[in-house]
């Protein structure tokens, strides 16, 4: 099973996770910029984080045979801190980078006026840079927050085919798919969405414009939930092509709209020897 995890925070994960993900079939992923748990207090710590998403983390992932891309944004939670908002002015220089395949995570946390402003501004940055947008939906008051998010997306003028709304559930998937946006689901051990519920959503709504991710981070989460969902789909009677569509083709199609998703031609054949190539430069993966 070949897996592309379209939303996972590898900065918070260990090398054991990378090894387990590779063994489970994960060959590519997107790490969205988000909150680190500990609030940041200055723009500079965002810039170091963005540099890490563009530098150290792809390098680390490559050592485990996994291709790493990222999305860059000021996240909704920290958009409420005036000390962090100047990050918005510096985003263009990061959105110009090769491995940035979307603007994100943007969206609502508490639906404040500050969040309204950051969401609208960053949707316009996505339009300006020709990038998709990865939009987080709030955990509290999710249905209302999702409707409001769709309104802002519509007002922005961005093509809905370039937008994924993430962390959806049974109550929010319908309006999102109807809007023309993509529907993202985060499969979690206890909250958000489970693999069995996900199978039911797929039965009802089909596999088109659907992304399944682990959204694994520093909280209780599981980087192998993508694989578990694939297994649950097969057990429920979906064929291999449907699993491949949800877990590989769909994220490739969505992020491919950036024009920057350059996947290695043979993602199943990482070369452990010295001639393996990262960004065209010879590195040794894994070491001895």
């Amino acid at each position: 099973m070949r897996i592309f995890d379209p939303h996972i925070h590898m900065t918070s994960r260990t090398t054991d996770d990378y090894e387990a993900m590779y063994a489970a079939g994960v060959r590519a992923l997107v790490e969205p910029a988000f909150w680190l748990g500990q609030p940041r207090t200055s723009p500079e710590s965002f810039y170091d984080y963005f540099d890490s998403l563009l530098g150290w983390e792809p390098y680390r992932a490559a050592q485990h045979g996994i291709q790493h891309f990222c999305t860059i944004a000021l996240n909704p939670k920290e958009a409420n801190d005036p000390r962090c908002v100047p990050v918005l002015d510096e985003l263009p220089r990061y959105l110009a980078k090769d491995r940035v395949v979307a603007v994100g995570e943007i969206g609502y946390d508490s639906m404040t006026p500050e969040e309204d402003d950051a969401l609208a501004r960053q949707l316009h940055l996505a339009i300006h840079h020709g990038l998709p947008a990865l939009v987080h939906t709030p955990h509290r008051d999710k249905a209302a927050g999702t409707r409001r998010t769709l309104d802002v997306v519509k007002e922005s003028g961005i093509d809905p085919a370039l937008v994924v709304l993430d962390h959806l559930n049974e109550l929010t998937v319908g309006i999102v798919l109807q809007s023309g946006c993509w529907a993202g689901f985060s499969i979690y051990p206890r909250t958000k969405m489970s693999e069995d519920r996900m199978v039911e959503v797929l039965k009802e709504h089909g596999t088109e414009r659907v992304l399944v991710n682990s959204a694994a981070d520093w909280g209780r989460s599981d980087p192998l939930k993508t694989r578990r969902t694939g297994d649950a789909m097969l057990a429920a009677g979906f064929d291999k092509a449907a699993v491949e569509r949800v877990l590989w083709d769909n994220p490739v199609a969505f992020f491919g709209q950036s024009g920057r998703l350059e996947l290695d031609p043979e993602p199943d054949a990482p070369e452990p020897d010295e001639s393996s190539s990262f960004e065209g430069n010879s590195i040794r993966r894994g070491g001895a």
Binding site: A96, G259, R260, S277, E279, G280
Partner: peptide
């Protein structure tokens, strides 16, 4: 150059060239 430098790889390509260069 500050705007152009990041775009080089997308505009000119990144295939191996000579030695260990691209």
């Amino acid at each position: 150059i500050r705007a152009l430098f990041p775009a080089v790889r997308r505009r000119c390509g990144h295939t191996p060239l000579t030695g260990h260069r691209t």
